[in-house]
């Protein structure tokens, strides 16, 4: 199993800035690009604040493996359920982290681990079965440098 060293990843990002014309996917995502991406995923709905919660560490000891849990207030019945949750990290080379698609079962909660290139805001946007969209945004500090960073 190869070693994924964040220093190498970061070096790649730095090099990416110089090579942007050649490899646009290496450019750092910005909020506008992320907004655009989210808008497409939620069919142009305007996300409102609320209903969505994200659990993140205050400080990520290492940006390579950051655990998160997203929960949405929803009865998860045929009449009213969460269709999708999109997790977006604006400060990463590409903003998308993961999209989760639900059916009316269980509860609207998922956990996973993600890579974050630097201290940034992480957003979770939920699209409901009635077409409305809800969101939450939370800042997370990512340790860079040092033995674990």
């Amino acid at each position: 199993m190869s070693q994924l060293n964040r220093r190498t990843v970061l070096a790649g990002i730095g090099a990416g800035a110089a090579a942007m014309a050649v490899a646009p996917q290496l450019a750092l995502a910005d909020k506008a690009a992320a907004d655009d991406m989210i808008s497409k995923l939620i069919n142009g709905a305007k996300p409102q604040d609320g209903k969505v919660r994200i659990k993140l560490p205050q400080i990520a000891e290492n940006g390579n493996t950051v655990p998160f849990t997203v929960t949405v207030d929803s009865p998860m019945t045929e009449a009213s359920y969460v269709k999708a949750i999109h997790v977006v990290a604006d400060g990463n080379p590409a903003p998308g982290v993961a999209s989760f698609y639900f059916t009316p079962t269980g509860k609207a909660e998922v956990s996973m681990r993600m890579r974050l290139g630097k201290t940034q805001d992480v957003r979770a946007v939920a699209l409901m079965s009635d077409g409305s969209a809800w969101q939450v945004s939370q800042e997370i500090k990512v340790t860079i440098g040092g033995c674990g960073g």
């Binding site: 190869s2 070693q3 290492n62 440098g145 040092g146």
Partner: peptide, 22 residues
Amino acid sequence: RTELLSQGMPNGFPQYRLKWQT
């Protein structure tokens, strides 16, 4: 700097490191 230094106790090896992702 940002590094909290531990006592360097190797009682958990082989161990999974977030930095290594392995």
